[in-house]
Design a protein around this nucleic acid. Structure first.
Lengths: 344, 344
DNA sequence: ATAAATTATTTAATCGTTTAAACAGCTGTA
DNA sequence: TACAGCTGTTTAAACGATTAAATAATTTAT
């Protein structure tokens, strides 16, 4: 390996002090430095292929121009799409991104936070796992951070998230408007606020349409253990006393598994049952019927979170909380019921 | 924000020199340091919530314990799965991962390399874009790196990749063995070695089975511009003078678009045409027929690349080149032809 | 011609660590 | 009693930059 060029090398090459090199290469004190020397220094820097040592710079300035991104699992498309957007946005402001996956585990989150803080990141963007309130509270006096996707209503932190209540409400209203009144929900068993908001939106929309929810319609599966549970849930929804004619999946992972099960059971969409999914996925394209979905404004979310964080780092101001609206993409899986018009 | 505790703070608190604090917290000179002082120092470190400043450490030791990962696009499932595996593996050795997306663009690659080098990463893992040979050659004397997924046969670099020739050969042989002899290939128009190896494997397997390839069977699409081209390609393959009865897709992105088109055209798989895909994707699960595919050993690839890189960083030895074998996952999309047995 | 003002450059401290070398206080031995 | 050899600890330089303050060199004003 070839040794890297430092300012010292340039200073020696040109025959000036290190300070002068620093001033020239950082375009400081421009009117005080003789043109000829400045040119010589720049020429030497180019010739010796000088690359500033960001580590040394950071030690002195206490800024690393690095952001930490903590997602649940970088291999999940939701996380990796977000990562890509954040990477791009950060790059515009000359920031680099360090990432880590928390696996929805608060201990692992704490470990990542410590690692990233040791590396002196300037700020963090976090998709917080369930039960991480204590960590986040402690973090507030250590470093600027912005929560993304999920937040805790009783914690006064910066966040950029979706208005989950409204999004689901709109989706359910669309189902009702399309003639579906027996609507099942398949969601996660979790206390995460954004998930419970989805349930709340579902309940409210049905209530506002004078539809009484049967208990059997709400299915909450344990994280990770889907496959078996999903099959059971779907069969129960379709065969109970009050079989549903529409199913709302509360996330893309759930929808993916759900659609797979519908395929396996030979259920026809939307003739046997309509399907509405939270989140979009390229995978849905391969399903026999295009799937209506609630599309999150991922690009906005990532960009806003990144800009907000950089803003806070640079100006150190206020707490900002953003709730974005989702977009309902209507496709054939929620085709209006033909047989009879809605009672409405 | 609360000021971070430094070794100086601990030293003052306990009333010893900074050096002693360093020795104790790094478990050095253990037999030379009095137990009582060591205990006091550790206690103070805990009490003041000391976290080492990795930046200062790095400046002194010239090691950042950071790896740079450059993929084509972190939002692509192939890249993000790899990223997750590399993150996990690196973590085992106390390394952190900085990532960037090159967008298959050598200029952008160069920019990322410079940024990552400024940040003094200890090594790089790179999925190299087409036309980046010059950059990589120059990089060889700057920093240790390992190529992943793709490599250049005329460049003597470390790499961990797939034996693409063999993988495709095996896949085609399976098609032939299942009774398909008119096999189309849909691939990318690119000079990347790993892609051309796939074509070579396809050709060789057909030749070895005494099958003459019709020119029309090989379709190479421009990157990114699929959708239109894909529809055209598939229609031509299915309707030419020598219509194919099997299609081999050279990547998961191609397969995804291809399957979508097959759906749109109402083509039945495998009755009208068999389908074999390179790479696996969760999305395939939603296709009406389970898809036979060539599964890359992603976990092995990521782990080996990471370990190899760390090994090189720490011991600075030899050039290592690894070609891994793929696994053929046989599913219904290549069900053996029923009507007549193979001539063989 | 000399002081004052301006211009160009250097000195030196600093960021938070690491680590070789120096030093101080003991103990044991010749 | 002197000094060699331990043990425990400190000193100080270094990593590669930044930057306030000092200094040197030149020009302008008087």
């Amino acid at each position: 390996m070839v040794k890297k060029t430092s300012m010292k090398d340039i200073a020696q090459d040109v025959g000036v002090s290190i300070a002068l090199v620093s001033y020239v290469l950082n375009n400081q004190k421009e009117n005080r430095i003789s043109k000829e020397v400045a040119i010589k220094i720049r020429e030497a820097a180019r010739r010796l292929n000088y690359q500033p040592n960001q580590i040394a710079k950071s030690l002195k300035t206490n800024k690393t121009y690095t952001l930490g991104l903590i997602v649940a699992d970088i291999s999940n498309p939701f996380s990796s799409s977000l990562a890509r957007i954040i990477e791009n946005e950060a790059d515009k402001f000359n920031y680099t991104v360090l990432f880590g996956s928390s696996d929805e585990n608060p201990q692992r989150l704490q470990k990542l936070i410590d690692t990233l803080l040791n590396r002196q990141v300037d700020g963090l963007i976090i998709a917080a796992p369930e039960g991480s309130e204590a960590q986040l509270t402690a973090l507030q006096q250590r470093i600027p951070f912005v929560l993304i996707d999920r937040y805790f209503p009783n914690l006064s932190t910066n966040y950029v998230a979706l208005d989950n209540y409204k999004s689901i409400y709109t989706g359910v209203q669309h189902l009702v408007d399309s003639g579906y009144r027996r609507i099942g929900l398949i969601s996660f068993a979790t206390d995460l606020f954004h998930v419970s908001e989805r349930k709340r939106g579902y309940r409210a929309a049905l209530k506002d349409n004078q539809i009484t929810i049967s208990k059997a319609w709400i299915n909450e599966l344990g994280q990770a253990t889907y496959t078996g549970e999903m099959a059971k849930s779907i069969q129960e929804l379709l065969s109970g006393k009050q079989p549903v004619n529409a199913i709302l999946f509360a996330s893309n992972a759930l929808a993916l598994h759900g659609l797979k099960q519908l395929n396996a059971l030979g259920v026809s969409v939307p003739d046997d049952v309509a399907v509405l999914s939270f989140d979009e996925a390229e995978a849905y394209d391969l399903f026999h019927t295009p799937v209506t979905c609630i599309r999150q404004p991922l690009a906005d979310m990532g960009q806003m979170a990144t800009r907000l964080l950089i803003d806070i780092i640079q100006k150190n101001n206020r707490t900002t909380q953003v709730n974005l609206d989702a977009e309902l993409i209507i496709r054939a899986s929620t085709r209006p019921v033909q047989t009879l018009a809605t009672a409405d």
